[in-house]
Amino acid sequence: MRKTLLYAVPVTFILVSLTLMISGGWLKEPMGDQDELLKSVQNIEQHVKRNEWQEAKREHTYTKKAWTIVSKRIQYSVGKESLSEVSQILSRMEGAIEANDANVTLVEAYSFYELWENLG
């Protein structure tokens, strides 16, 4: 019994750690109505293209909340730099929305898409 535990505990720990480290791809996907991050950025893009700035601001508020939820889930499976870069993109996007600058908002949205695709 003791010998079994001696091997089972480290092997279990290693398996759980590996699973957590490679799970970023599916952990970034929405798991409810509160964390649909990709869809939210796509909605912002559509609002900006139609010059609906108030709706874009509301959607960005949801986006920040969704990012908070998703970032907690994926923090152990992606690099810290990637998490920071997504946060920076969302902050720049917020500034562009406040300034009603469609060009910068769309550039940041497409930067987000590229990063999101490679995340996890």
Results as ranks from 00 to 15, higher is better:
Ile44Thr: 02
Thr19Asn: 13
Ile97Arg: 06
Val11Asn: 04
Thr4Arg: 02
Pro30Asp: 02
Val11Leu: 14
Leu90Gln: 00
Asp33Met: 13
Asn103Phe: 09
His47Asn: 09
Leu6Pro: 01
Arg73Leu: 06
Pro30Ser: 02
Ala96Ser: 15
Val16Gly: 01
Tyr76Leu: 15
Leu18His: 02
Lys57Glu: 15
Ile69Gln: 12
Thr4Cys: 01
Asp101Ser: 07
Val70Thr: 15
Leu5Ala: 05
Ile89Asp: 01
Leu6Asp: 05
Ala99Asn: 14
Thr105Gln: 03
Ala8Leu: 10
Val11Cys: 10
Trp53Pro: 04
Ile69Glu: 14
Glu36Ile: 02
Lys57Gly: 09
Trp53Gly: 03
Met93Trp: 12
Ile22Ala: 10
Leu115Thr: 05
Leu106Gly: 02
Glu29His: 08
Tyr110Trp: 09
Leu15Glu: 06
Asn51Asp: 11
Ser71Pro: 10
Lys39Val: 09
Ile69Phe: 14
Ile74Phe: 02
Gln88Pro: 04
Ala99Val: 05
Glu29Gly: 03
Asp101Val: 00
Asp101Asn: 11
Gly25Cys: 06
Asp33Gly: 13
Ser17Arg: 03
Arg50Gln: 15
Glu59Ser: 08
Lys49Thr: 02
Met1Leu: 06
Glu85Lys: 15
Thr68Arg: 07
Ala99Leu: 12
Asp33Ala: 13
Thr105Ile: 04
Ile69Cys: 05
Thr12His: 00
Ser111His: 15
Glu29Val: 11
Asn103Val: 14
Ser23Gly: 04
Leu115Val: 02
Leu20Gln: 09
